[in-house]
Amino acid sequence: MSLDGCGAPEQGVDITVGANEVVLSGKVRSDGAPVGGAFVRLLDASGEFTAEVVSSADGDFRFFAAPGTWTIRALHRSGNGQASVNAEGPGVHPVEVAVA
């Protein structure tokens, strides 16, 4: 799998996104390879836990959030990692999280 696609996660386009939905969507990777079965936690601007999903076999995750700055933290038996994303308004906001 090429890393060129990092900015545009495939799975973000295969759902119907409501006009007002703020979607944070992307992949968990380790050394570039997708990590399935990671626990992906959405933390708000103050670091408070908001939601959690398990990444798909292809490493995909998706949150329905609100405008703002969010941290996405992934936990996996192979390691943990996090990334931040600023969602200014409705739409699909891509984000990648590397675990090590």
Partner: peptide
């Protein structure tokens, strides 16, 4: 601000 946890649709 939200109607459901953030891993669910909000409508």
């Amino acid at each position: 601000k939200l109607l459901a946890p953030a891993h669910l649709p909000q409508e």
